[in-house]
Write a protein that binds this DNA or RNA. Structure first.
Lengths: 242, 242
DNA sequence: CCCGGTCGAGTTGTCTGACAAGCTACTGGT
DNA sequence: ACCAGTAGCTTGTCAGACAACTCGACCGGG
């Protein structure tokens, strides 16, 4: 069985890795079980060993497998399907959809205002420069799962840009204007209180607060996102490994 | 400049990756800057291109670099030194020490008791089988930063094992008895309340709760750890990337 | 002068074949 | 029954080659 016809998008090894991932998550090998050797995988996918090794390193970097010299590669975990993987940067809507629920988004406010001192520092703009600030609620199956406060430099958009056009995923919006988020330097906090968020939420809720500075491939900050996840409404999974 | 004389421990590519990591964290290349090409790195470290590529994939899997076909590999971030990296599994004492503080540990209780139903399920033992349960406080510079409730199957240790001998890192203890934790399937939660932990702590603190099932290389569960990190006393950093 | 396409140098992705090094299980001896 | 040695499998590393991709320089036409 070969992989998809060579659409020029993702690399060959990435496609092989994706296929192996789905096979692992489907339970084709139980945790602790040994996967076929690299030579067999070469024959199966009709690619060279270099490509297979690249794919296997991808799996290992996600904590799904462990490969040992002289032994082989063992599957370690396959039970994290659908959970939000904190290591991978993807839009929240995507994560929710992968979790089998229907994502939604409610914009509470979109304003154009000068950047505060803290924001200016993190976004590498001058204090007082204009930024677009949004307040949103993320929903899954119409239940609010998180509140998000995002700040984007106004300079990223053309002069005739109308903030009221903002809707849906900010990721997609920024990408349409040529700003693609590659990495996010993130901090994780726990907090609680009734003064966070709005609308439908528990009485005295706890929140998982994820503060992220999204940056360009050049290291240029393009967004500052503070997302409050309501405890219990959104599962955070993670495979940690050596 | 070559890497360390070939001590048979870590692989060659791992040692190259470690050296490159320290160079990145030292700021030898700024975020957005291009690293030397693979060919140059080969010459520098006197290894083959396959080894360099393996090392570079390690860097990319940690979110430190991005390598693009036809372009090169760009450094994306170097400012996360010292923070606890949620993706990597390492003992807490190690993390604290890397953070430049002095780790400590206060055992509050060590008991031998039958496993509860939930514990039995997660640890893959029979309900009622004996487990070793510990309550500990982790300190950094004599300040409590986390409370940890850990459960280990009694069967992992020899018959003459004395629970009162337990001290210091549980990682190290288990490793002495041939049980080496390779991965941890983890969940992340936020919680708060005065009924968590003991001793010195804020009045109404928030906690980052990390629930981990540590497993063997064979997928056999060897420990169940619930760690409550006191908000504000321990920085959690993370580089997320595509 | 400006704009667009072409070309080439430099880079990573993939291929091939080979050997070194590590682990496991079996074998044959004691 | 026990132990040492070994054969066979596995991954790690090496070498050299070509394909595919990106970016900037160059050049011709408007």
């Amino acid at each position: 069985m070969t992989v998809e016809p060579t659409g020029s998008g993702p690399t060959l090894s990435a496609r092989v890795a994706a296929d192996l991932r789905t096979r692992i998550e489907a339970g084709e090998w139980a945790p602790g079980e040994k996967m076929p050797g690299e030579h067999d995988l070469c024959a199966h996918y009709e690619v060279s060993r270099a490509t297979i090794r690249t794919a296997l390193q991808d799996l290992e970097s996600r904590g799904l497998t462990v490969t040992r010299h002289g032994l082989g590669t063992l599957v370690t975990a396959n039970a994290v399907t659908g959970q939000a993987d904190l290591r991978r940067l993807e839009s929240m809507t995507e994560t929710i959809r992968r979790h089998g629920r229907t994502p939604g988004m409610q914009y509470r406010s979109i304003v154009l205002r000068p950047a505060s001192e803290g924001e200016a520092g993190k976004l590498a703009v001058e204090e007082g420069d204009e930024v677009i600030a949004t307040e949103r609620a993320l929903t899954a199956d119409d239940e609010i799962v998180a509140f998000s406060y995002d700040v984007i430099p106004r300079a990223l958009f053309p002069a005739d840009f109308d903030p009221s056009e903002v809707a849906g995923s900010l990721f997609a919006l920024m990408e349409r204007h040529g700003a693609r988020a590659i990495v996010a330097i993130s901090e994780l906090h726990a907090t609680h209180g009734r003064d966070i968020g709005w609308g439908d939420r528990p009485n005295d809720p706890s929140y998982l607060l994820l503060i992220q500075v999204h940056t360009d491939v050049r290291g240029v900050p393009i967004a500052l996102a503070s997302t409050y996840f309501i405890e219990g409404r959104f599962p955070f999974g993670l495979v940690r490994h050596r």
